[in-house]
Each structure stands twice: as C-alpha cells, then as structure tokens.
Design a protein around this nucleic acid. Structure first.
Lengths: 352, 352
DNA sequence: CCCGGGTATGACAGCGCTAACATGCAGCCT
DNA sequence: AGGCTGCATGTTAGCGCTGTCATACCCGGG
C-alpha cells in the first residue's frame, strides 16, 4: 500500500530539496537549547514571559548558531510585517532625507523597517510605487503631501491602513496629517519682505501645476502681497523645481521682464542660492537692490554670501512625529488630532 | 472518536480567526476564474506557459478583485525575496541618492525592491543595519566603500550572498566592486592645480580616519603634489565631512595658518562652495589669489560665483552598473571582472 | 486502435514561523 | 486530600504562496 498522504515524505534531518542549504531555523536553535520552537520565538519577541534560566540557554544557542529569524515566515504567520512604506517625491533633495531619517530613527528602535520609494512628484507614479509596496504587507504608510490619485485614497481607506501624510496640512486627511502650513509660510515671507520695504515682488519656483506644496507657498505669498498693497508678484515658473540650472536662467528672465523687482521669493533654497549667485554675476546687489528669501534652510543657506534669509521647516521633526503617531496607533494608544501642525520659522540672515 | 488530526478544522469559507479580514487571496482569484491557485500563480509569474484563454480569465479576475499577491508568502515558499539590501553612509547627501536611483531604476524593472539603510560612516552601524536587514532574506547586498567590519565580511562570504561594493575600488573585494579610483581622482586634482601654477596647496575635508574614500583622495592628492615638487599640502581635517559650517571655520583657520596658500582641494563640493563663499567674505580672490577645486559635481557647483571646478563622479552609473551585475548573476549569466573601474572626470570651470 | 510525446492544468506538501489552545506543575486555600 | 490559580512551556494547525510531481488531454504515427 502507498504511504498515507499525511505522512511526511521529506524534511527530515537530511534536509528536503526545498530547504535552503545551511540556513539555520528556529527549530535548530530550539534543539540546541533543549526547548521547543515556540519558546525560542518567545525569547526573541517577548523575553519577559520566559523564565530567566530558559532565556539564557536560548540566547546562548542563538548566539552560537548565529540565528537570524526569517521575517518572511514571521510576517506570514503573524500577519504583521513590521514594515512601513514611505513615498517621497525624490531622494535627491536633502529635505526629504531629513524626514526619512526622522522616521527611521523612531521606527527602528521599535523594530520596524522602512521601505522607501520616490514618486518624482507624480501622483500616478506614486500609485504604482505604492502598488508594488503593497505586496510586502506594510502595516502603515507615509505619503508626502496631500494630493494623491483617487485610486490611492480609495485603496488606503478600504484597507484601513494607518496612513500619515507629511509636509502639508489637509482639510480632509486620508487618516493623519503631520505637516506645516505652506500657505502661511508664503504669507510670512511676504510680510517680511513688505516690512523691509519691498514694493515689487517676484517669485521663482516650480510650476504650480506640478508641485502642490510649492504652489501653496506661492498662493500664500501672493495673497499677502495683495493684502499689503504691493504690486502683484511677477512669477517665473520652472519645469524642474529644484534645478539651479533653471533658476539661473529663470532669474535672468525675471530681471529682463521686470527690472524694478526689489524682492524675490524662491520656492526653495537651491533656487535661492542659484539666484543670489546669478545676481552677483549681473552685479545686482543683494539685499541692497534686491532682497532674496529662500525656503527650506538647506545646509548651505547659512554660508553663501550674502547669507540666505529663508524659512526653516521641521523636516526631521515631521518624520519623528509621523513615526510616533503610527507607533501610538499600533500600540493601541490615544489617537490625537487628525491634523498636526508643526511650526516653521523665518530665519533672518543677510539676503533680506 | 475525535476528529483525525489531519482534517481541516478551520479555514473554510467562513474564514478562520487568523485570516486577515477582507484580504483577497490567490484562492479567491482562482475560484472566480474557475482555475486552481497554481494556475493563477503561473499567470502572474510566467504568463507564457499558460493558455491564452485561461490567462485572460485569470487577469480579469485579478483586476476585478484588486488582487495583490502576498510577497511574504511567496518569499517563504520560493525562498526568493526579490529584495536587495543597500547600505549607504547617509541619505542627506545627494551623491548617494543618485546611486540609489540608479540601482532602483534598473532593479525595479526586474521586479526587485530595495531596502535602503544608512551607516553614518560607521562600520559598526553598518553591521547592525545589515543584521536587521538579513531577516528579510535579501538576495543581494550593495555596500558603500570597501572598509567593512570583519564580522560583516565573514557573514557575507559564508552566506554566499552576491555583494557589490560601490564608490571605491578594492584589491580584494568581498565579491564584486563597482567604483572609481579615489586615489587617482586626488592625483588628477593635484595635476590640474600644479599646471595652473599652484605652489602652496591645501586640503579641506573630513577626518581621514572617519572617511576612507575621502582619505584616499587626500592621499592621491598629497602624493602627486610631492611628485611635482609642490610644498606639502596644509591639511585641515573636519569632524563632519559634509558640513558647510565646519568648512567655513576650517577655511579661516587654513588661511590663518598659511596665508600663502594658492590652491585648495576640498574633499567634496559642499565644502568647496562654503570655502568659495568664505573666501569672498575675506576678500580672497578666487581663482586670482587662490584656486579652489571641489569633488562630486553637486547640482549647485556649476552655478556658484565663481563657477566651481570639480571632479564629476559616476553616481547614477555606479548604481546602474551594480544593479546590472547583480541581475546578470541572478540570471546565471557571465560573471565579468571582479572589480569594475568607472571613470571620473575633472570639470574645469572658473574657480581653478 | 494504441502509444509516445508534448502541452496545459491540478493536487499536495511544505517553506519557517506564530496564534491559539493545551498541559504540567507549583503553591495556596478550603 | 481535592481543587483552584497562575505561570512556564508545549502541541497543533495554519498563514498564502510555490516546487514538484501527477494527470488529463490532444495530436500524429504506426
């Protein structure tokens, strides 16, 4: 008679063909420590509930064998991946790197890992990156900004994935938002320039259609200029909102279009630094003839000549706060407000 | 008599307590399409071997249900994670971001994902980040530089994990190295300055003990200066090798120590830009009285005043090449040479 | 008509781990 | 003594997928 089907036909001590050669399994540790597999699992995940003596023996076996738990198996068994998906517009800009480090600092101590992807400022790409991530069963999601493809919003709400939107505030966040008020930041710059006597403002930055957050800063700036009776800002949009290349030529176009510009708001510091440099080449005195304000307080901002007046943004802090909110939720703690408004700060230096 | 142990006691259509509510499984797709689970799996992974009619029905069911395969389960079953672990020194510098994008561009089309971590230039931290990654069963590893903790080297060799070391060349790579010659780059800068008439060179950059690649550039620079009979370079090491803050004060110390310096090599562009700016503040003419060369060709380098002469490095290309080498290996193709030397390029602009 | 070989699909077990429940054993109370 | 409580550990059955082998079917040749 044939073997009954439920009798193991492989997987004994010799090792089945499907098992990875040489990989150490929890079973191996258990055997060496003289306990069962589940006890090893408990030592690794909830040491407090294991007797001290047992714990010591297991720890020793783990060390001796160099055991590393297979998290794919753990994820499958526990339905918990300890993975957080993060999508930022780009990695090339250090501003988001700060936020990622903030997230990582906070989450890694809690045993979570980050999956980081970038969207290139496109909602479609964001969706496709996210789709790819979904298969890895993230327990939470961090997105940049509040503009997302409707399909993504639906997906997230349906799955009830804890989601944090960062770098902006939302009227109706998908779940939680941790950011700052880009509109107010733009207005704050307008105030500063107006108080310094600027009458003919201009703006250099990304195409409002492409970058929602920069567009809000622009809107806040424009509104406040109007409220204070300044001339309507001359706006020079750029295709790539982070390109010093484009900033240089854009600045030249700007002064050609309106030679009387006496105040310039650059939608980020990379552009502002390039503008300051081009101003020097054109012998336009900054801040004498033109005041320039940046945004973001990049590392170099404080060190260019003249030192750049800019808006400091809580990049690292947003990451930390977003992480904390997610951990609070995971541990079933308080929920807190849905929209968390961290503050920005105008840093006055020499350029305005 | 009790139920025989091999009879399923749960997991029927009602859903067991352990199953995630509402999650769609391959089984659900199979049922809707009127095929078995394995056929769905084949449609998703090797569509070519499935009959066209079946494939269409399955694709439709996948779409209709919005099915996303659980990669944790797939990883466990196939022993293939489609995951590549990457460790860079920091995310805050755009130079590594380029490399990561290069890796990601190439790997994502092949269905691989990246796990990115940062080591803060510390071999110990690198090891601990790597340990954390191991549990997710990466199929390959990308490390920055060729200096690693011995424990890490042992671990990688023992597991036979395909490994690429980037951003440097190694005499004895762990496995594969794809980088460029930092020593030669330093020498190349020395050549350029010497030809321009520099006699009293200096170097501003990270502490050689902390950053091995910057140290090699320094060594190459120093050696070539000596070979050309220049005065031995005055070296001003910095604790944080990327800090414009420190560059500014370091530059001041440098000119105080040796007022006759007529050529400065900054070990990266962030420092070089800060140095140029401080030179202006001190009314030191660049390049008239002092020539300055950077390293890395950051975005802003071409746009500061004076425009920065620097060394362009194949950041994106290293990522792509590293990815290709790993994919070649995964697909069992040719092995190629162990150490791949991509070229750098001195970009002459105005500052030297 | 059967047979061999190729193609398309299915059944089954198991990847390595953990949730859920079961068991065993002190220590204490009645 | 019997039972009850609480702690430490073990047993069992999956988690959702894919490797492997089995099977069904079709086609053409003998």
């Amino acid at each position: 008679m044939a073997r009954a089907p439920w009798v193991k036909t492989s997987g004994g001590e010799a090792g089945s063909r499907r098992r990875q050669r040489g990989r150490i399994r929890i079973e191996d540790v258990a055997e060496l420590a003289g306990v069962s597999a589940i006890t090893v699992s408990r030592v690794l995940r909830t040491p407090a509930i294991v007797a001290e003596d047992t714990r010591r023996r297991v720890d020793e076996a783990v060390d001796r064998l160099g055991y590393v738990p297979n998290l794919a198996a753990g994820t499958l068994a526990s339905l918990k991946s300890r993975l957080v998906a993060v999508v930022v517009p780009t990695l090339r800009s250090s501003v988001y790197a700060d936020t990622i480090q903030g997230l990582s600092d906070e989450l890694s101590t809690a045993g979570y890992h980050l999956m980081v992807g970038y969207s290139g400022y496109s909602a479609e790409l964001e969706l496709s990156v996210f789709r790819a991530f979904m298969g890895r069963q993230p327990e939470a999601v961090v997105l940049t900004g509040v503009e997302h493809s409707p399909a993504l919003r639906r997906l997230l709400r349906k799955r009830k994935l804890p989601t944090v939107e960062i770098w902006d505030l939302a009227d109706d966040p998908i779940d939680i938002a941790v950011g700052f008020d880009n509109f107010a930041a733009g207005a704050c710059v307008a105030d500063h320039l107006a108080k310094a006597g600027v009458r003919h403002p201009a703006v250099l930055g990304s195409d409002p259609a492409r970058e929602a957050r920069a567009a809000k800063r622009l809107a806040g700036f424009t509104a406040r200029c109007q409220a204070r009776g300044l001339r309507a800002p001359v706006v020079e949009p750029l295709i790539d909102g982070m390109s010093p290349e484009e900033a240089e030529s854009g600045f030249r176009r700007l002064v050609a279009r309106a030679p009387d510009i006496d105040g310039l708001f650059c939608l980020n510091d990379a552009l502002a630094i390039a503008a300051i440099m081009e101003a020097r080449r054109l012998s336009i005195d900054v801040p004498g003839r033109m005041r320039i304000v940046g945004f973001g307080d990049f590392d170099l901002a404080a060190h260019v000549a003249p030192r750049l007046t800019t808006v400091r943004v809580p990049g690292h802090e947003m990451g930390r706060r977003a992480a904390r909110r997610l951990l609070d939720r995971a541990e079933g703690r308080k929920r807190g407000q849905r929209v968390e408004d961290l503050s920005f700060e105008l840093v006055q230096r020499e350029s305005a």
